[in-house]
Computed example of a mutant assay.
Amino acid sequence: MKNIAILASGEGTNAERIIRYFEEKEEVNVAVVIASRASAGVIKRVEHLHVPCRVVTSAGFASGEALQVLQEYKTDFVVLAGFLLRIPDAILHAYPKRMVNIHPSLLPKFGGKGMYGIHVHEAVLKAGEEESGITIQYINEKYDEGDYIFQARCPVLPDDTPETLAERVHQLEYQYYPEVIEKLVLCLK
């Protein structure tokens, strides 16, 4: 069995979907969720799912505490789900091509520092784009510049607001992210 860790900073809707997806799977186990702040909604969301959740602040990531937690839970693969901190080099080096993120746009458009959540959807609409979507990618030292693994698209409708576009993009995330994670984890040696 391969153990995955989920890193999250927000409400945890993707984290919950991923945990539920793997509940009945025999080959992949969500071993731990690491929240980057004590007020993150993900903590309450995963509480009833019987997955350990640890809070590691930005200082804890910088000091190596997060890497220790990943090692403690014998993590084989790391999944970012709404995680907003920069990943320290020590973790990047410990999990090369074993750490993925999902971004709510079709990268390379609308990526980089500060481009997350509703900010992305506002930028897509402001630019007059006709489509948006998701990008699943490996993590590297720069925000949203890792190798792309998968993209899925959806239309931008003439009457879209940032919130309606976000909902359509979330549906793509919920549908595809767990499936892509499973394929990647099952290919690990």
Rank of each mutant, 00 (worst) to 15 (best):
E173S: 09
Y73V: 12
V46H: 01
I102F: 02
Y116A: 14
F150H: 05
E145M: 11
R45G: 00
V32H: 04
P96H: 00
E122C: 05
L186P: 11
Q68F: 14
L67W: 03
E27M: 14
P155N: 13
V28E: 04
V46I: 13
G112K: 11
H93E: 15
G111N: 12
L84M: 12
N29K: 08
E129T: 14
N3R: 13
Y21P: 06
Y176L: 13
G111I: 04
T75R: 08
R86M: 06
S63R: 14
G128S: 10
V33P: 01
E72W: 00
N3C: 09
V46P: 02
E11V: 01
G82A: 01
E131K: 14
K2R: 10
P155T: 14
F61G: 12
A66L: 00
E122R: 04
F150P: 08
L7K: 02
P104C: 06
E131F: 12
R168V: 07
H93S: 15
P162R: 12
A59S: 13
G12N: 01
I118K: 14
H119P: 03
G146M: 11
Y143K: 05
Y174T: 09
M115W: 02
L125R: 04
T57S: 15
V46T: 11
G112M: 11
F150S: 06
A15V: 00
A59K: 11
V42N: 01
K189Y: 07
S39W: 06
H170W: 11
A90N: 08
P108I: 02
H121D: 03
L84H: 02
Y116R: 13
V185H: 12
A81Q: 07
Q175Y: 12
K109M: 07
G12K: 00
Y174M: 12
A5L: 02
P108F: 05
I4Q: 10
T135R: 07
L186S: 06
A31C: 07
Q151W: 10
A62H: 11
A15C: 10
M99T: 01
Y177S: 06
I136F: 03
A127N: 09
A94Y: 06
D147T: 14
G114C: 10
Y177E: 10
Y21C: 05
V55C: 02
Y176P: 12
E27P: 09
H121A: 02
Y95C: 06
